[in-house]
Design a protein around this nucleic acid. Sequence first.
DNA 1: CTCTTTCGCTACGACTCGTAGCGTAACTGG
DNA 2: CCAGTTACGCTACGAGTCGTAGCGAAAGAG
Lengths: 217, 217
Amino acid sequence: MTSAPQPPAHRASGRTGRPRSAEADRAILDATRAALVELGWGKLTMGDVAARAGVAKTTLYRRWAGKNALVVDAVADLFDEHLDLPDLGSLQADIEGVVLRFAALLDRPETKTALMAVVAESTRDEALRERIRSAIVERQKGLVLLGRERAQARGELPREDEPAVAARTADLIFDVIAGAVVHRTLVSAEPVDGEWARGFTALLIGGLASAGAAPPV
Amino acid sequence: MTSAPQPPAHRASGRTGRPRSAEADRAILDATRAALVELGWGKLTMGDVAARAGVAKTTLYRRWAGKNALVVDAVADLFDEHLDLPDLGSLQADIEGVVLRFAALLDRPETKTALMAVVAESTRDEALRERIRSAIVERQKGLVLLGRERAQARGELPREDEPAVAARTADLIFDVIAGAVVHRTLVSAEPVDGEWARGFTALLIGGLASAGAAPPV
DNA sequence: CTCTTTCGCTACGACTCGTAGCGTAACTGG
DNA sequence: CCAGTTACGCTACGAGTCGTAGCGAAAGAG
């Protein structure tokens, strides 16, 4: 009842009949983000989004199952735009870079509100959690794998032998980086600036080095 | 309009008139947690909580300003019960212990749902954020300080000279521990078991050791 | 030109919100 | 024992939101 079984946007074009307006899609997602900034999650209403987008309320419900699914898609767009990992030449610089970029993304009011609200709702909705995972989490995790690949090519990190261990380590690093930045930004409510990013990166790289040198019991 | 200016529970007892029922307080907070488990944040209604608690809806509004404030208090109770830091003899064991205890707390369905939802709402409500900070975050942060104190007494960690640096480091560690556990549990949706706790602790201690040995530029 | 699908619009019952008003219950100070 | 004061349960209310249904018109496909 909460999450959407239907595909997020356009379907296969072999269909007959009037096609869905792609422009309406954009307008709706833009309106969702704007309304999120002004009203927050709790006071965001479907009717308001429809009015902002210049679209009938029924059109919203034809495409998304409800507030949850709509907001997930609206936020996923932002992650598409702002998540990449430029090669900055060293592991230290790469991690600092991704930390700062992720922090900048979380600093946007529409992102911080929406992401947490959707995650909260996902604790009760398996389909919604899958949607978040594929739309947001997996893309971020790809950055971790890419960063490690580069660091190994540079010789900054040892190559893992066992793929199972390598996967576990990557998951761990991902949770540590994303978790620390999110917690600092949203719970502690203090800024992720260059100084914090340096301190955090030093901590993480130090841990990786020593953990690699002395593998766990 | 969202958060409560009034004190959470009992006022100074020098007052005249009928005192507030402490039993009702308990019943309401219990009912809130139960409803949270069954319905989730989105479908939780004040009327439903009142009915479960055997209390008039108006009584709820006399004590709390709304859903947000009510849920913060309901969850803060859980943190009171389950957060402490037994001395396990080593820094490694202490960290693993607190990670596992915190993870067990987050594994409760009422905690995971409520905490995220309240944090999400707090991004738009300064008073609510303060309430979360004093009711939950500061108590957790105390554990970090206590753990470091013990580790320094054991000689496992160097004593910080500058208090400013020491405070920054404590904040960093706090965000890393709490953030990683929360992210692993709620976003990655994978279990924090003994194996994960060992790997994480090894990473953290390694980082602390090397950061202490080679202070940041 | 017909068929199919989406569109905007209106209207609807069901539900929740937060407040107000009332009479009653509980406790305090004289 | 008797005001005075405060909290309580109950009922009722207007305002707002939800998600759906039904309609005629618009936009492409064959």
